[in-house]
Design a protein around this nucleic acid. Structure first.
Lengths: 158, 158
DNA sequence: CTGCCTGCAAACGATTTGCACCAGC
DNA sequence: GCTGGTGCAAATCGTTTGCAGGCAG
């Protein structure tokens, strides 16, 4: 697990550096650290959570910068932005196809991999008119923690 | 099409009235009209768009009430709340299993029905710990309008 | 009389924007 | 010196909340 995350981290950073080189985008400390933070976290952090993590390494970094870097990463297809019906948007450093278990009670999002879900039929371009490049299955329900907690679980995923 | 929507409308209203009767929830004009507006619209309107539609029939209705009614409808499982990575949350009056085509450029959400997607395997309760009751496949890409418009399409779905 | 639905205005939280400063080319 | 990234503070936007009036049971 730690090994897989480590690989993902290095691979992501390398890809980032290559893309930046190609497009002439400067690789600043802030950008690298935000990406690292995102790749290291296996939860699906909010901008705020990422900010907190990054601040341990760059104490002076501003929220604005974190938002701007995240937006850039999404543009470069190095991150995915997801908004569950809760409050804040969440960012996801995994760009390979995977799926999500969403807790309707506490908004937690957990990754779900299942080979059986990775080859679903894309809608026909002709009938929908959409040009589609990716998909993701969202399962909705209740997470283990909220199942145990009788009600009104606080909305703060670990 | 118009026929199907009509059926959905009446069925939804009836279900709403029954649920309210069961739970002793008053069926006010505002609630009925918001639900009707939601059921009539085939797009996935934001709270704001619903508000505009409802105001044609109840000029004095407040945004607050629209939000509160929508929240109630979600609680009663008569509507689904979806947040695409854009800005505002969107509401969906269709509670039967269906899927979504999401335009990453203008945030439009279009329904997609495909029998092949309606019987996917649910994750194992034992391994995930989640109690899941529904799922939905989100296809990500670009809608026909945004494919035609070169760039920076306005973020206002019709 | 009581409860709760509604409307208004203010509060709130997440995100964006305007502007000035600063570093690197 | 010019370009573009960053930080700060203010603005913005969607949504929520506190409170008072009003209607229905």
């Amino acid at each position: 697990m730690a090994r897989a995350e480590d690989d993902r981290l290095h691979e992501g950073i390398l890809r980032f550096e290559q893309i930046c080189r190609e497009r002439g985008i400067p690789v600043t400390v802030q950008r690298r650290v935000v990406l690292e933070e995102l790749l290291e976290s296996s939860t699906h952090p909010t901008a705020d959570q990422i900010q907190r993590g990054v601040q341990r390494r760059i104490p002076g970094i501003s929220q604005t910068t974190v938002y701007r870097v995240l937006e850039l990463l999404v543009e470069l297809d190095l991150a995915r932005k997801t908004c569950s019906p809760g409050t804040a948007c969440r960012y996801d450093g995994r760009t390979v196809r995977h799926h999500h278990l969403v807790c309707l009670s506490c908004d937690r999002i957990v990754d779900h991999d299942d080979p059986a879900l990775n080859d679903l039929p894309f809608p026909d371009r002709g009938s929908t008119g959409f040009e589609l490049r990716e998909y993701s299955v969202q399962f909705l329900g209740t997470c283990p923690d909220c199942l145990n907690a009788p009600k009104d679980t606080e909305k703060i995923p670990p």
